[in-house]
Amino acid sequence: MLDDPAVALTILVLALFVGVEIISKVPTLLHTPLMSGSNAISGITIVGALLAAGGEERNLAAWLGFVAIILATINVVGGFAVTHRMLAMFKGKEQR
């Protein structure tokens, strides 16, 4: 799908601009949850790990994929869960 470097770079550059736009709007109040949450998003690399571990052969490449799955899952689950825990603490005055 991304065989054409020009297409791939186009997607990359546009995504960077979107990223800068939406992240600049996150208030400093929420920067720590932003970090742990975006951290969890970078765990999307788990897709690559699944492909590596799920092939037909069980060779070294597959076992590396297995370790990558463990690490990426810690990243994803830990990141989203701790973000959830933090955000639950941000309460307004009326809600207390």
């Binding site: 600049s24 970078s42 690399t45």
Partner: peptide, 28 residues
Amino acid sequence: AACATGFVLGNAGLVISGSLVGASGLIL
């Protein structure tokens, strides 16, 4: 790094998500 992995796999989803995080880290 996730973005680079996206290029390896030819996966636009990874490229987009990875660069979102890349931008976020740079802004912070």
